[in-house]
Design a protein around this nucleic acid. Structure first.
Length: 515
DNA sequence: AAAGAAATCAACCGCCATTTG
DNA sequence: ACAAATGGCGGTTGATTTCTT
């Protein structure tokens, strides 16, 4: 297996891409598609290797990129997906349309990891740090014992291996794989790693199916979603035991995750180390024949077995709470970025979140919470909801408001906006959203509508214009563009929120108190 | 205001799996 | 069947930006 040929070639440029190079690549791929990446640089007139071109396209030039800070919901989704998938960034990114694996990876390494640690959660295992330490001690002791005892029960090995081999043995996986799980009153979770291996049932082989194919066709049925209830986390909750009405199996964005029990009798040795996330049209989803419905933000398992839950990790919001860099083209009834090209002309100059374009992750509020993360801001699927609460974090010249949901329809927080965007596009702009979905199909077929807020062509086009006009500091120019877009997005979100909150209210009426 | 620290992010590196000849 | 070419992925690096003192 040879190394990539381009690695040996001489005279190839490396490092940051210039606007001219961007333009060349963009023009070429726009006209011809990328085809064979290795031939792209030659045909496009670039002194780059194909890999570099591919990377540049995927991570930056692609028209469907959603730029700007990650929303709280996205962050939480990443955490949850990471709990299931581990460092499979590309798979995680696949669930966050408009986001790249690189972007998510960076966010994880620079920000989320830290947050989780500050909350006492081990980012690699998603377990409480104290528990990880205990596991580590147990492992050490078991290692010592293994010198004495050569054979150990396979189930015990599974558990230990999962912990020690960086398998993302999370509360999720613990619960799903049948390990006893306890939820204490302060909502920390502990596993009952009873030394009696009989308590550790052999987990079945599970595959983590993702059905996204219905993204555009069933939108009108995805009514759920009290955004407050779903503030960006998966919740494995047992309806009967916890009486939590969140989610209730309503699939709000048409993304259906299912744990399919392929072979309930499979031995532990056959168990996939990590449930594999694949795309599937299979329905209905089941876990051990139990119906599951899982939205992007919640999973409902209607089980009759004792509750096995995982903590919902709702990261405290900071800058990411700023309105997502959503293209609110549909505000104008224009639902694709090509058509919306002309809509981004104003340059807002407020001192809002856009001034913090780099997405700094520090926030005095969250950093000083000293474990209050679970106390203050978190939503738990098993119903430890607290009344709506707004945490404010003074961050220089602007405030981030962390809405701890409950009554989303009455608020204008960004989550509401996102949901209302989704609902709006689903219910009120069905045709347009379909066209948007078609546009998005370029890279990912059938995106959930809520993720159709892709990077606008305007970004590109404005960048392209900047390419031709830029002279000295193109990086600075790009930053300015990003700021400008954030301002624009903010402004449009304000408009959108007004419109959509009305729509949501109508929906709430239409669906009774379901929302 | 300046210097250092920390955070962010784009891009590279090297490995692996698949495809192609 | 084999080796090279290619695409893709995750880990890592280093430049830049932002924050803190």
């Amino acid at each position: 297996m040879g190394r990539h040929s381009c690695c040996y070639k001489q005279k190839l440029r490396k490092g940051l891409w210039s606007p001219e190079e961007d333009e060349k690549l963009l023009n070429y791929i726009t006209k011809h598609g990328h085809g064979c990446w290795s031939s792209v640089p030659k045909l496009a007139g670039l002194q780059r290797c194909g890999k570099s071109c591919r990377l540049r396209w995927i991570n930056y030039l692609r028209p469907d990129l959603k730029r700007g800070p990650f929303s709280q919901q996205e962050e939480n989704l990443i955490v949850e997906l990471h709990a299931v998938l581990g460092n499979r960034w590309s798979q995680i990114a696949a669930q966050l349309p408009g986001r790249t694996d690189n972007e998510i990876k960076n966010l994880w390494n620079s920000c989320i990891k830290k947050k989780l640690r500050q909350r006492g959660i081990d980012p690699s295992t998603h377990k409480p740090l104290s528990e990880v330490e205990n596991d580590h001690k147990e492992k050490l002791s078991m290692t010592n014992k293994s010198n004495e005892k050569t054979s150990v029960g396979s189930n015990e090995l599974n558990l230990v291996d999962a912990v020690t081999n960086s398998k993302p043995l999370t509360a999720t996986t613990i619960a799903l794989e049948g390990y006893p799980l306890e939820v204490s009153s302060n909502s920390k979770i502990t596993t009952t790693t009873n030394s009696n291996s009989s308590n550790l049932t052999t987990p079945p082989t599970q595959e983590f199916f993702l059905d996204r194919s219905v993204g555009t066709s069933h939108e009108s049925s995805t009514t759920s979603c009290r955004s407050s209830d779903l503030v960006g986390y998966f919740s494995f909750h047992q309806q009967s035991n916890y009486g939590c009405d969140m989610g209730l199996g309503i699939n709000q964005n048409n993304t259906t995750f299912s744990f399919i029990n392929h072979n309930s009798t499979s031995s532990s040795s056959e168990m996939a180390p990590v449930p594999e996330l694949i795309s599937s049209n299979m329905t209905p989803p089941t876990v051990n024949n139990l119906p599951i419905s899982m939205s992007s933000s919640s999973i409902s398992i209607f089980a009759t077995t004792p509750p096995r839950v995982k903590p919902s990790i709702s990261l405290p919001s900071d800058h990411h709470q700023s309105p997502n860099s959503t293209v609110s083209c549909d505000v104008n009834g224009v639902h694709n970025w090509e058509a919306a090209t002309g809509t981004f002309t104003s340059t807002t100059t407020n001192n809002g979140a856009g001034s913090n374009s780099n997405g700094s992750c520090s926030s005095s509020m969250e950093l000083q919470s000293n474990g209050s993360f679970f106390d203050n801001a978190t939503v738990f699927p098993w119903g430890v909801l607290q009344p709506a609460e707004t945490l404010k974090s003074d961050n220089k010249d602007h405030h981030h408001q962390v809405q701890v949901h409950v009554h989303p329809l009455e608020s204008g927080d960004p989550e509401d906006i996102k949901w209302s965007e989704y609902l709006h596009s689903s219910f009120l702009l069905g045709a347009n959203s379909a066209s948007t979905a078609t546009t998005a199909q370029h890279n990912q077929t059938s995106q959930p509508a809520m993720y159709n807020d892709v990077k606008p062509q305007t970004h590109f086009l404005s960048n392209r214009s900047s390419i031709t006009s830029s002279t000295a500091s193109w990086h600075h120019h790009q930053n300015q563009h990003q700021h400008q877009h954030q301002h624009q997005h903010q402004h449009q979100h304000q408009q959108a929120s007004e419109i959509y909150s009305k729509d949501l209210q109508r929906l709430a009426v239409a669906f009774g108190q379901a929302l």
